[in-house]
Amino acid sequence: MTEMYVLRVNGDEHAVADAWLGESLLYVLRERLGFPAAKAGCEQGECGSCSVFVDTTLVCACLVLAAAAADTEITTLEGLQPSARGAVTDVQRAFVETGAVQCGFCTPGLVMAVHALLETDPEPTDLAVREAISGNLCRCTGYGRILEAVEVAVAARRGAAR
């Protein structure tokens, strides 16, 4: 058991009490704090379905020890997207409209990874996109529609910037 600790998630403080020391940030987000968007696909950092931002860095929440994340700013998909019901980011919109979503299990992690990419590289090449999402496994789509979604989102941002 750990002492009570506080996690700062999406700008709000959440007390975590009676937790086990070994609990990952992913487990605490999902099972204790009610943030289910990050998914548990492998718990080995191999699938990327649990991608979240710790401070401003994209990491696998399954490999973050929750009790050691007390002094960080954690952002999950719930905090990245508009809070209004059904509202979406440009990347999320592109995913829905291009058919990049099938079973949807990998989708939250991929949306996080694409946002992370476009923050640093607003005009990525095909290879740069592939490398940036290479840690997010998808078994349904073969990635074709996902790559298309990124292109659509990039084009939309380019259009908006003009």
């Binding site: 020391l21 070994g22 990952s24 490999l63 009790a67 050691a68």
Partner: peptide, 26 residues
């Protein structure tokens, strides 16, 4: 000893590494 966690947490998640105390050196 916990640094990036990418080795340690794989073992913890898999139940192979019971934790009693952690020194996070980051």
């Amino acid at each position: 000893v916990l640094a990036g966690g990418t080795d340690l947490m794989v073992e913890v998640n898999d139940g192979r590494r019971p934790l009693t105390r952690v020194v996070a050196v980051g």
